[in-house]
Write a protein that binds this DNA or RNA. Sequence first.
DNA 1: GCAAAAGTGTTAAAGTTACACCCATGA
DNA 2: TCATGGGTGTAACTTTAACACTTTTGC
Lengths: 258, 258
Amino acid sequence: MNSLEEVDDFVKNGHRHYLPHLSIDPVIFGYHDQQLKILLLKWKGLNGWGLPGGFIQRREPLSQAAHRILQERTGLESIFLQQFHIFGDSPYRLQERSTSEFRANYGLEVNDDNWLFERTLSVGYFALVDYSKVSVRTDFFTEDYQWWDVKQVPPLLFDQSEVVEKALATLRLQIYHQPIGYNLLPEKFTLPEIHTLYETILGKELDQRNFSKKLVALGLIKKLAEQRAIGPHRSPYLYQFEKEAYEDALKQGIVHTY
Amino acid sequence: MNSLEEVDDFVKNGHRHYLPHLSIDPVIFGYHDQQLKILLLKWKGLNGWGLPGGFIQRREPLSQAAHRILQERTGLESIFLQQFHIFGDSPYRLQERSTSEFRANYGLEVNDDNWLFERTLSVGYFALVDYSKVSVRTDFFTEDYQWWDVKQVPPLLFDQSEVVEKALATLRLQIYHQPIGYNLLPEKFTLPEIHTLYETILGKELDQRNFSKKLVALGLIKKLAEQRAIGPHRSPYLYQFEKEAYEDALKQGIVHTY
DNA sequence: GCAAAAGTGTTAAAGTTACACCCATGA
DNA sequence: TCATGGGTGTAACTTTAACACTTTTGC
């Protein structure tokens, strides 16, 4: 959605294609430089950072809508995506929004009863992606994008800070029940990498020896013959997930602690 | 909503008061006769069993809507209620519904574009209630209600069987993180009662000695001086929850297994 | 006294935690 | 050779799992 005509059509006629009152807000997690990051967009006019949200087509299954929105933004076809909450309590979600601000910001005419400005609840999804494979597209409404360390997320638009917090809390809760390592790391990774990833997500230290001992003992990862050169230090071995064992273990939630 | 005028107004003008495209489906759990039960309504016209759902008012916070709907149905003011999923994938949720069937069943005129017959997604909530305190109200659309053993729930309307299954799965997952015993049992209960409750929810046997040992050792429940007479058998002692210890433990998810 | 349900302790096994030194690498 | 990060094993402790007999009650 880039040309003015497309945008105008979306604003004026979007309600024929999309459900009103309901949007999808995806929290996209990636991992890079030993930091857990989320992808935010800078919204034009609103002049603030927010989630790369979108709307549900009238005849489109909900989960398909979530995948489509993610695909349109990141180019990723098949990603781990999970619904975690629906937000409908925040004061921002109870009010209708001002159309005059919109006119001033974008120079587009809108009626006061335009569908985009009615009360909107939002379904929160979180996505786990391989940071290196994402290529972000911006559009008419978004002038910039940036990966933010979850520890340093700026205040977000509307109630979206709450959405991000809840996504993080859910990620922590589900870390032993979802294929989190599997989706956030590249295919081959080192022990220090996965160790730091888990420490970062949980926000606490995990004993290095116990952590790797357990992952290997459970057969969730296997050591490869290759090593990675990391400069003037000992070269760490590369590991790979044992996909079947990993997914079996997650089903049973076998992996309790490290 | 009992008189024909009220119903007619709801059908024709409901969209001014309620959000279209979105409903709330509560799965109400109770415990009685050593069975985990859910409350179902028999819908008139549709001639089948379904959840006691309702709609969200246009300016009403989502969680407040869920409480209101429950309160209207069960008379309960303060109940444990938790959102667990939003359903928007089922074929039933993608189609608009037939207005002609409605005309035939209820003898009320509706336009084809009536708000009640548009695609509707649904927010699933589960409630844990003290079975003995519920007094159900039926209305124009519902001719009967019944508590059903979760093991013998009949096929439900639309995709609601899926909603109930997901509620049960969530209940099992959260059994060590939510005050489940606290909300499903009366204030005073016996060890065999809480033991059977947990076995029923989890669908598996729990060692009797280990179970009670752990609850008591953690200080979650305390033995009272009273006993309950249960006929020609040894009288079991009554127990009570230690509310603070119980809620602290749940926060940390301390209670792993029994 | 008999049938039915409640109550009670110990032991082996498994899992978790704590902890420190040597190794490999490139500059 | 030095600075930096990687790799490895053992022992104490905690938690869990398995298991059977005696007591109480009302008829």
